[in-house]
Amino acid sequence: MKILVPVKQVVDYNVKIHVRADNSGVELDNVKLSMNPFDEIALEEAVRLKEDGKAEEIIAVSIGPGKAEQTLRTALAVGADRAILVEADNRTEPLAVARVLAEIVRREQPQLVIMGKQAIDDDSSQAGQMLAAELDWPQATFISRLELSDDNRTATITREVDGGLQVLEAGLPLVITTDLRLNEPRYASLPNIMKARRKPLERLAIDELGVDATPLLEVLKVEEPAPRKPGVIVDSVEELLDRLKNEAGVI
């Protein structure tokens, strides 16, 4: 079985982002970029399935500018066997991403697509569900546990839902999106980082796949959120309760 793992290069989790002075977007120049944390979890799950003998090949795919190659090299160092970079210079919306991924799925015929539940830049949380729709596959979103049957024909999935946990059974092929508690991703070792440089990486242009990636949403403005008014440090529980009662009027 082949597993496809889409990965997105985003501003690193630990970077405090800055909105550009002209409100055109978030500053991306000279900022540390890394693999989207949810995608790391997706990749880890795929690597574990391969280690357990459930999968033969892991293909990492990214859609983005040329420098997204770094993120694919990281994926190769962690355990992907080969990578595909679909180069796109402009902002690619989740719908276009899903259509590109659907084309890759038709070419590569994976039985499982495992991807992050959302990217921590645009926080849209759409691409996985949209890919499932494009392929007419079932979808299992926000999962915290995955178990494949011995014959790899069905998956039992635990999903994190608002009220608790939900267990579903789905037939393969299937699109899965990962939540935080599915696993703890590993780091790439130095020898594996060296080896990853020699693993195959194919470059495609988005047009070659016949996908129109023209954005459907027009970004008019990006702003800093309104700041909260500064607070006060209180000295005691009595003062806290007094202020909550008499100043804020919330208790």
Partner: peptide
């Protein structure tokens, strides 16, 4: 934008060929 809405709405959007606006 609950766990239900976030699950099914993008599936509907893709079937309609439109870009969802999330949250």
């Amino acid at each position: 934008a609950t766990s239900t809405g976030r699950d099914f709405a993008p599936r509907v959007a893709a079937k309609l060929g439109v870009m969802q606006v999330s949250s």
